[in-house]
Write a protein that binds this DNA or RNA. Sequence first.
DNA 1: GGCTTATGCGCAG
DNA 2: TGCGCCTAAGCCA
Length: 264
Amino acid sequence: MPEGHTIHRLANRHNRVLRGERLRASSPQGRFTAGAALIDGRALVRAEGYGKHLLYDIEGSSTLHVHLGLYGTFREVVQPAPGPVGLVRLRWEGTQTCHDLRGPTACELLEPDAVRRLVARLGPDPLRRDADPERAWSALRSRRIPIAAALMDQSVLAGVGNVYRAELLFVHGIDPFLSSRELRRADFDALWSSAVTMLRAGVRSGRIVTTEPTDRALRGRAVGADAHYVYRRTGLPCRRCGTGVRRAEMAGRNLYWCPSCQAS
DNA sequence: GGCTTATGCGCAG
DNA sequence: TGCGCCTAAGCCA
């Protein structure tokens, strides 16, 4: 769900089915009534993903900014759509499809200045063609926090969340407690390259599957925890060495790692 | 059907 | 550091 891959997948989807059309907008829940009225009947020029943020360029209006947070979801149904169920912050409708946004952290209209400020505080997004990995590298060098915390910091790297950070560090055998400024350049290059690959795979499939088929307990389709090396596998044997996967809390989030494969 | 947990993040203190 | 947001999947019965 909502790490960068979800956001870019939604942006792609919305560009495909909503772009160019005059869209009806409403807020059945009532928390975005004024904003919805401002974009109602206007055309979507372009949807864009930036890290975990969705930005919608609306013709003749401000930019619609959506952040799903932990709970937010966008659900699409074919028209004619049934009446909204539950707390729908934004219902956005084209002729063919209807999109219901529930539980977002942010759903607001932003002026160009605010959009620039938002983007300015984000690090490079591995899913964007304009991403400059050097910015992430220098951000890591200038900090003195565990690499596992740095990868979650959206001003260092935009789009990576708790699942990808655990899997990225495992795949490259990096100790999550290593100081960000001690990270070797070769390891950074490998991390960045894998982030691009993993996130792109997530955009295609809509799920986070990081394990290679040869590393999976079951052949073929990755199911549940089978899709990951260490994320949410506390106590289970590491797929590479058999050591029990460990869990610790870091900055209020669960961190998972193999103490044997990821030792400094 | 109910309970637990969560892929995020801003804010109070 | 801990809380609040307030959806939905996964698990159990």
